[in-house]
């Protein structure tokens, strides 16, 4: 009987350890996937006449590297975000709700094209959604 308890206990502990969820960063596909994600997003932005004008004075190379860094950081990856706060970086751009919606839809479309699992997509969206108030109408 005692042996059974021990076995169950050992099984539970190992099962729990084995089932420890990988970080969101890993679920998204790590650095490779996040880089592809950002590059895909840049292409979508470039082809969206409704929002591309917001980027006309943007240093795209810097924007790209900061966004990769930020997505890595926000998904618990091994990065520190070194860019400005969301409020700072969007002030003066007058990003509307429609602009924000379009960017989110592009993000979803790119994640889907990259075959990122839906639960990882939704977890990332859940972490990004609260930024709405810092990004829009500033």
């Amino acid at each position: 009987m005692r042996l059974i308890y021990v076995c169950v206990l050992v099984w539970l502990v190992t099962a729990c350890t084995a089932a420890a969820k990988p970080s969101l960063y890993q679920q998204l596909g790590g650095e490779v996937a996040i880089t592809k994600l950002v590059d895909g997003l840049l292409v979508k932005i470039e082809h969206d006449p409704r929002i591309v004008h917001h980027f006309k004075d943007t240093d795209i190379a810097r924007f790209r590297s900061k966004l990769i860094e930020q997505l890595c950081h926000i998904s618990d990856g091994p990065c520190q975000y070194t860019g400005s706060t969301m409020q700072e970086s969007h002030t003066g751009f007058q990003i509307t709700a429609a602009d924000f919606d379009r960017l989110v839809q592009h993000l979803i479309d790119v994640m889907t094209e990259l075959h990122i699992p839906l639960d990882a997509q939704n977890e990332l969206l859940a972490r990004l959604a609260p930024m709405y108030k810092d990004v829009t109408y500033r």
Binding site: P117, L118, D119, A120, N122, E123, L125, A126, A129
Partner: peptide, 9 residues
């Protein structure tokens, strides 16, 4: 609610 149940909204 994003990522609410089984990773679904």
């Amino acid at each position: 609610y994003l990522d609410a149940i089984w990773g679904r909204n």
